[in-house]
């Protein structure tokens, strides 16, 4: 068996990139302003007339509102966000879903599509059969329907694109690395599909052939996935890990570019630091070129 060894090397600082000058960076306890004409937003607190930062990050001003956005946090859900989550508990008329949020999200029985169409009544039998649809440990994709007062999220899966996830690979990255786009479901040209959950959970799966309308998204395909698809999926996974390790934003273009830059490397080699750096360098260059 071949083993890959490397000696400890000093961490490379990304000094070759242009320094970000225009941004106002603060650390906890820093006074942002002493002017009382501003409104206090997230990541700040008032300390006798002074507006003080409570997290380390970038100051954002919208008119009179001042917020500090930290570099890395738990997922702060907003209505309409696409999330990927894992069922942790089955309760009365609801499932608890772990979505990398500060409290577990809820998925109400009344906000899922049950087999048999839109207008089906939910009976007590459905309540008893909840575990047959989704049980502890299942992965789902869903959309945020509303946010409760304490910050917990209420999810819904009332569309055929949401529902239980079958065969595929989950990659967990920081939620701040997911770029907000119009769509978070992509059928990539390289032969796999991807769900970029706003909560930092990325699901990579083989592109489905046809949608089954009747099942309501609770029946998963357990046919073996061909080797070629599995290779594409694992290559994508390693590319996404590489992008997240170098703190690059994830969206369809960046993923596709990194996939193409990694194409002539072996899948397992992508995670080697020197090859990863090469791929990221190439991806960064192509993105800059495309942006002009």
């Amino acid at each position: 068996m071949a083993a890959d060894l490397r000696l400890p090397a000093p961490r490379k600082r990304s000094t070759d990139l242009p320094k970000e000058q225009g941004k106002h960076l603060v650390a906890p306890g820093d006074v942002i302003t002493t002017d009382s004409g501003f409104m206090r937003g997230h990541g700040t607190y008032m300390d006798d007339e002074k507006l003080v930062a409570s997290v380390a990050g970038v100051v954002e001003r919208v008119n009179k509102l001042i917020c500090v956005r930290p570099l890395k946090t738990r997922f702060n859900g907003e209505v309409g966000d696409v999330v990927v989550g894992r069922i942790t508990e089955v309760q009365q008329k609801r499932w608890k879903v772990e979505t990398n949020s500060r409290l577990d999200s809820v998925l109400l029985l009344s906000s899922v599509n049950l087999p048999g169409g839109e207008l089906r009544r939910r009976s007590s039998e459905d309540e008893l059969a909840m575990r047959e649809y989704l049980q502890e440990g299942d992965l789902i994709s869903a959309e945020v329907q509303s946010v409760f007062a304490d910050g917990a999220l209420s999810l819904h899966t009332r569309s055929l694109k949401y529902g239980k996830l079958g065969q595929g690979v989950l990659v967990q990255v920081s939620p701040s690395l997911i770029k907000r786009r119009k769509t978070h479901f992509h059928n990539l040209t390289c032969g796999a599909s991807i769900i970029l959950g706003n909560n930092g959970y990325v699901w990579i799966y083989p592109t489905p052939t046809e949608q089954n309308e009747e099942a309501g998204g609770f029946v998963t395909n357990t046919e073996p996935v061909p080797l070629s698809d599995r290779e594409v999926i694992s290559r994508l996974r390693n590319c996404i890990l590489a992008l997240s390790m170098h703190k690059m934003l994830l969206y369809d273009t960046s993923i596709l570019y990194s996939y193409e830059s990694a194409f002539h490397h072996q899948i397992k080699d992508i995670l080697k630091p020197e090859i990863m750096e090469e791929i990221i360098e190439e991806t960064r260059r192509r993105i800059l070129e495309q942006e002009g």
């Binding site: 600082r13 320094k19 960076l25 380390a56 570099l71 703190k247 690059m248 934003l249």
Partner: peptide
């Protein structure tokens, strides 16, 4: 400690870019 935090902050915001 503040120096460490600010260096880290600078480094990460630079690589995220946007």
């Amino acid at each position: 400690l503040d120096r460490v935090v600010r260096d880290h902050l600078q480094e990460v915001t630079t690589s995220i870019g946007e």
